[in-house]
């Protein structure tokens, strides 16, 4: 048995963990790439990164992100940005805190430690030269958390929800990255960049033995069965965990069917076919389908509301009665 609120919280733990890693990879990439670019080139690259992370609308709110420093602050420690590392790390900590009695103590300790260390850095406003240090720290902490998850957590519903959250977030990021790549205003699809941002470059080299071409990179990211980050692998894992939940709790059948359908369309080449005809609409539709899956899971979990509206009602003698405030 798992509380609906806990299921929801752990789903978001998975998503925020994945988001932390993705943002850190983007920051790492940016730190290494932008220094070689001219001012206008850097601006385009920054825009692309923000788009890849799905943060266009948030970025629009904070104004222009022209320089490196601004981009780093935005992605690293801007509390107004729900996708910043600080926001994600805080969210992971808070969600784990609220599910504390059902997760391994070590998982809480690692997440709490990451949050505390990160706060130390961000409170001290890290100068750019310490950026690599922060990123390394976060990356290591994420690895430690993954280690506890994989080796120290009972394979119960809670574990399943964390994995599902990760897989969903990862799928959305990967497809979002490819969409952004196809619509790059610079007119070229940068295959190396895509593989770097998904930590898949090395794996691609070992598998294919040559420099990546755009089509090969996209196919690899979507369909590779040997790559745990590929969309195919992610959907398969999400589907397996949803099956576990169906078996133990008899719940989330709708979500499992939706994921299964998507995975089957991928396997049967249906999506590849659509991409051959018109890649951008096909990929956008895929991106949309994944978002649908995420919302279907939320609907089936039915977590209680954070701040439900409660109203009071009463009758009084002499008159009919009335309603109280919330």
């Amino acid at each position: 048995m798992i509380l609906a609120r806990h299921a929801d919280a752990l789903l978001w733990v998975g998503r925020y963990l994945e988001r932390t890693e993705a943002t850190v990879r983007c920051l790492d990439y940016a730190a290494n790439s932008i220094i070689h670019l001219r001012g206008d080139e850097a601006r385009v690259e920054i825009e692309q990164l923000v788009k890849t992370l799905g943060l266009e609308s948030v970025a629009a709110l904070v104004g222009s992100l022209e320089g490196r420093r601004q981009l780093f602050a935005f992605l690293l420690s801007d509390t107004g940005n729900p996708g910043s590392v600080l926001s994600a790390v805080s969210a992971v900590r808070e969600k784990l805190r609220s599910t504390r009695e059902r997760i391994p103590i070590e998982l809480w300790e690692e997440a709490n430690g990451l949050y505390l260390r990160f706060r130390e850095f961000s409170d001290a406003a890290p100068p750019p030269e310490r950026l690599q240090e922060v990123l390394l720290m976060v990356r290591r902490a994420c690895l430690a958390i993954s280690g506890v998850l994989n080796e120290g957590m009972r394979r119960d519903e809670g574990y399943a929800f964390i994995v599902i959250g990760r897989m969903i977030e990862r799928s959305i990021f990967t497809v979002g990255l490819i969409v952004a790549g196809y619509t790059d205003p610079r007119g070229t699809i940068d295959a190396t960049r895509m593989l770097r941002l998904t930590s898949s470059l090395q794996a691609y080299h070992r598998r294919h033995g040559h420099a990546p071409d755009p089509e090969g990179a996209v196919r690899y990211l979507l369909f590779a069965t040997d790559l745990p980050r590929s969309l195919q692998s992610c959907l398969l894992r999400a589907e397996d965990r949803l099956k576990d939940i169906g078996a133990t709790a008899g719940a989330l059948d709708g979500s499992r069917r939706k994921v299964g359908l998507l995975r089957a369309r991928l396997e049967l080449g249906e999506i590849e076919e659509a991409m051959a005809q018109a890649p951008v609409p096909a990929l956008s539709a895929l991106h949309w389908d994944l978002a649908e899956v995420a919302s279907e899971i939320a609907v089936e979990v039915v977590p209680p509301l954070d701040f439900p509206t409660v109203r009071s009602q009463y009758l009084r003698p002499g008159e009919a009665g009335g309603l109280g405030g919330t």
Partner: peptide, 8 residues
């Protein structure tokens, strides 16, 4: 209690 399996 509200769980993913319904009310228990």
């Amino acid at each position: 209690v509200r769980t993913i399996e319904g009310l228990i």
